[in-house]
Design a protein around this nucleic acid. Structure first.
Lengths: 189, 189
DNA sequence: GCGTCTTGTAAACAACTGCTGACTTACCAG
DNA sequence: CTGGTAAGTCAGCAGTTGTTTACAAGACGC
């Protein structure tokens, strides 16, 4: 009755990763303790160091995961606002750890910061491309980065505050403002 | 030669507040230690508890300060983007602790959260008013909150990442995108 | 001068942090 | 069945955290 799934290295690794993603995204790096993560995963604390070497290593792994899952997204030209709206609303419901939020969480570690910045830059560039920016057009890239900032700020505010009607807005409610935002910043359509 | 300004309760209180505002804004609540703050202020650690009762109390005082200084801002209709741009660029240079960032920092404490939310809500409502929203128009308020999210996201991304051209953009560079953003979200002019 | 309140200092506390090492136990090839 | 190894457990370490306490010293009325 105790352990239906014991002795499963890959499984516990995944449990730790998911718990860490949730905790880091919701509370930030410093405010999250390894014991918090281990408890939420239902796993012994020492296994964090076994599988990820350190708390920093676990955080890096979380970022890697976000990078992989987001690597294929955002290609369609007109789908950018829809994708953002879905991410935001999906994240708000607890169904999935909010991946976008992790991109705003900093641990201070240099390697983790490299990963984080890499994802953010790539994301901004793909947004710029979706907005028909000419490669090398600095002003257009800046506008894409502003758009990215807006999406991330939205994710953060929705997850850490209670501010109606923003908090309760669903995917559909968010779509229209995001669409306007996209059209205004990247009118290259 | 040692102490030109010793024995100044109000002065050290102010030094602590300023140092705390900088640290909390830049690194967040959990990642900032009371010894960090005291060292940056050039003041003994114990005085934090003397003057502010606790780390939480100091954080609350920081939020109060932001609330007071931001209480009078944002009234002009067409000045919203300009004010935001100035805040963002002024904050980026180290001249002033970035007040906007503090509004994204959470300590978990309930009273501090009340203060933070109060400021944010008031800010959003004044933005909505500046956009000629009718009082009670939920959709218009939502758009103002999206605009606020964008500004805060911009502040956070600029302060915690290195992402050109966003990082080096000055007030003038930011004004045009922000103006478009404002016009798109609050076209009530 | 003395006495007292205020301001600042120093040391220490208990709790918590990430992490480690020695250990038990499940699993599986032989 | 059995030995070896991978997987998980446990207790504890060394350092840090916020906070408190006891003490030293300036400011000031008298």
């Amino acid at each position: 009755m105790t352990s239906p799934r014991r002795r499963d290295a890959a499984g516990t690794r995944r449990l730790l990763l998911e718990a860490a993603r949730r905790r880091f995204a919701r509370n930030g790096y410093a405010a999250t303790t390894v014991r918090d993560i281990a408890d939420e995963a239902g796993v012994n604390v020492a296994l964090i160091n076994r599988y990820f070497a350190s708390k920093e290593g676990l955080f890096e792994a979380c970022l890697q995961g976000v990078g992989n899952e987001l690597g294929d997204a955002v290609v369609g030209v007109d789908q950018v606002p829809r994708i953002i709206a879905r991410q935001l609303s999906g994240a708000h419901k607890g169904e999935h750890p909010n991946q976008l939020l992790l991109l705003l969480r900093s641990s201070g570690d240099e390697r983790a910061e490299e990963i984080r910045l890499g994802i953010l830059r790539s994301f901004a560039e793909r947004m710029a491309a979706a907005g028909n920016c000419a490669p090398g057009n600095e002003d257009c890239l800046l506008r894409a980065q502003v758009l990215l900032s807006a999406a991330l700020g939205l994710a953060l505010l929705r997850s850490t505050t209670t501010m109606e009607p923003l908090t309760s807005a669903d995917e559909h409610d968010l779509l229209a403002p995001l669409q306007d935002l996209f059209d205004a910043l990247l009118p290259g359509r």
